[in-house]
Write a protein that binds this DNA or RNA. Sequence first.
DNA 1: CAGTATCCGGCTTGATACTG
DNA 2: CAGTATCAAGCCGGATACTG
Lengths: 119, 119
Amino acid sequence: MQKNPAQCQFVVALDSIVGKWKPMILYHLFQGEPLRFNELKRLLPDITQRMLTLHLRELEGEGIVKRVVYPQVPPKVEYSITEYGMSLSPILETLHQWGKAHIERKQLKNAENEDTKSD
Amino acid sequence: MQKNPAQCQFVVALDSIVGKWKPMILYHLFQGEPLRFNELKRLLPDITQRMLTLHLRELEGEGIVKRVVYPQVPPKVEYSITEYGMSLSPILETLHQWGKAHIERKQLKNAENEDTKSD
DNA sequence: CAGTATCCGGCTTGATACTG
DNA sequence: CAGTATCAAGCCGGATACTG
């Protein structure tokens, strides 16, 4: 894509965590407990099986998520954050902090607008 | 979108910086100097005017970028990071660090694969 | 110079059905 | 249970032309 040597490395990082459901998947897996496919599906009520599979495969491909298959019937598959994936936690943490502040800021702005509107 | 109370706040943060060119735009503006529309365009050789406008408008809407119009002919418009926008710097910094490490890791993996392939 | 306006293609996501 | 396969829709971004 872009060749710019140093500057586009956060694009790389973003690619690993961007996707409609990836942040949510990561959030739940970061709770620590390994989760089964259907447990994740239940936690993400609006996701389709297809998207859950796709995103999990991508995260697995990046080495962020570990997939463990228990050979039994009915099948059991558990997903968890890899040790490497844990290295994302500073990113998720700063994103979370900033997102929180950003929402509060927006609500403030809206409140101000309500004020001036009433004149 | 999702109602999940606390957990989706990094989605909010991501929304503010995700977009094909937003990270690059931010990168250049974070250098400190205000940049004119065409200067940004020159720094982002493959961006279209349309996308540059759209992304700048979005960043402006979020309060991250400031747009200053100098009323003169030919028009002059300067873009710069707002003080609020500066609060993104921890995010960009961690993303950058992680992206760098992630690339190196991938190259390592590739090298390993080359080794085993030669058997 | 700094944009808009239109039109269009592709990739991401969604819906639904099927399976070991 | 944990997926795959197929098809279709929607949104993001690209190309191009036009303008105060």
